[in-house]
């Protein structure tokens, strides 16, 4: 059983039917943003450069959009980089932390930050292709899961992305509307 299956099965024990990364979670970013000291207390995990790499990768996964049809914040806007770091420290075990660091160091050696945008994107496509072959957690899958989690459970991310319904009041089968945004009920915690 590879890791992804293991996590999916964990979700299934709970009767869940969604992909397992639902279980991946966390955020202190708002606190960190408003309490710089708390930030520095948790900042020893990555160097300044490594932190910039993680932020850049996260923002390539979930970029800010400012088009007529879609205005929404990006991963950096909602504090995903700090969130990723905090999650790794609090909720991930050493093998995953090591895999993550290995991946960051790899990008650092490539001079990732000084690559042109299209080459940065290509680097990530390569990471994604490599991750498919890997049964152990990789930098790419950890970063992607945490970026999605950090963004799609943040207040700004939810409000820009979904039809948030904290108190639906009923359950009924309905037909989908054109351009329907996914409902979110905020029950995943």
């Amino acid at each position: 059983m590879n890791r992804r299956e293991a996590v999916v099965q964990t979700a299934l024990i709970l009767g869940g039917i969604f992909s397992a990364s639902t279980l991946q979670a966390m955020d202190r970013w708002e606190q960190l943003a408003t309490h710089p000291r708390a930030h520095s207390a948790t900042s020893a995990f990555l160097t300044e450069t490594q932190r910039e790499i993680v932020a850049r990768v996260a923002d390539l996964i979930i970029p800010r959009l400012d088009t007529p049809g879609d205005t929404s914040p990006g991963a950096i806007d909602v504090g995903v980089p700090n969130f990723i770091e905090l999650m790794l420290r609090d909720c991930y075990k050493k093998p995953a932390q090591d895999a993550f660091l290995t991946g960051v160091v790899g990008l650092e050696r490539k001079g990732f930050l000084s690559l042109p945008a299209d080459q940065q994107t290509n680097s990530l496509k390569q990471l994604e292709a490599d991750a498919l072959k890997d049964t152990a957690p990789t930098f790419w899958i950890i970063t992607k899961e945490l970026t999605l989690l950090g963004y799609f459970t943040s207040e700004a991310g939810i409000k820009a992305s979904f039809d948030y319904q904290p108190i639906p009041g009923k359950f009924e089968a309905i037909k989908i509307k054109p351009g329907q945004k996914d409902f979110m009920y905020g029950n995943q915690a």
Binding site: A25, Q31, C91, L149
Partner: peptide
């Protein structure tokens, strides 16, 4: 969701 320190995890 955003009020949970670990977003559920």
């Amino acid at each position: 969701p955003w009020e949970f320190e670990h977003r559920g995890k």
